[in-house]
């Protein structure tokens, strides 16, 4: 069975470590916050100027001056800090943020990502995505393995305009977990975990990029 969005983000949460500073993208990645293990301190960075983002506020706590990068009202946890946009992106671009978890429309064999525009459709802008993929220490993508029409999203070369080049370290989809590896000077993604009851054949059908199978392939445990 392919993983649900909840299971994908639960798997992603296992990449977190105590004390990590993490930026979660809009959409599915925000669900990762629900799976932070009890007792682990993870600092959520919101690029509009908040480190230590908490849950959504109760009705009587709503504060128009306290939002996240998706413009939703949020709260701040004890130990949080507020700062301006230049400082926020110094954290991101300066390599101080340990991990970003983002969505993607396409990922190439070379680790490139496209997730901000589709030619011919209204372009809304790029927000902080290009800075995040260029600057954060480890970039993890959570997404459906294929498009809504069933076409591959992990492909030889991106067809959409790029958000960043050679910057994706790990992909978690409904079908499998892939890590970026280098062997004999060649870099590719390697499938290290496969969703329960999903076959190798299914993944090969759904992926047009070249990739490796881990010799130590496991079933995703979520």
């Amino acid at each position: 069975m392919p993983l649900t969005r909840d299971q994908i983000t639960k798997r992603a949460a296992r990449e977190l470590q105590d004390g990590f500073y993490v930026n979660l993208g809009i959409g599915m990645p925000t669900l990762v916050a629900n799976h932070v293990p009890t007792g682990m301190q993870v600092w959520l960075q919101s690029e509009n100027g908040l480190l230590g983002m908490g849950r959504f506020p109760y009705d009587d706590e709503v504060d128009a001056d306290l939002i996240n990068a998706g413009k939703q009202t949020v709260t701040a946890v004890p130990g949080a800090s507020y700062f301006d946009g230049a400082t926020s992106f110094a954290m991101i671009r300066g390599g101080h943020v340990d991990m970003a978890i983002l969505g993607a429309m396409e990922i190439s064999e070379a680790g490139d990502i496209a997730n901000w525009m589709v030619p011919g459709k209204m372009v809304k802008g790029v927000g902080g995505a290009m800075d995040l993929v260029a600057g954060v220490k480890r970039v993890v993508v959570t997404m459906e393995h294929t498009t809504k029409k069933g076409g591959p999203k992990i492909i030889p070369m991106c067809t959409l305009p790029l958000t960043g080049k050679d910057c994706i370290d790990m992909i978690i989809t409904d079908l499998c977990v892939m890590h970026r590896r280098e062997r004999d000077g060649v870099k590719r993604f390697e499938v290290t975990e496969i969703a329960p009851d999903v076959t190798r054949d299914q993944i090969e059908q759904a992926t047009s990029a070249q990739f490796w199978w881990s010799p130590d392939l496991k079933i995703v445990d979520v």
Binding site: E47, D84, G85, A86, S88, F89, I92, R93, V123, G125, V126, G127, G128, A129, M130, D131, G135
Partner: peptide, 12 residues
């Protein structure tokens, strides 16, 4: 369109 970090830094 400007990436947000580049936007902030260009203004700074």
């Amino acid at each position: 369109f400007v990436p947000q970090g580049t936007f902030a830094e260009r203004i700074r």
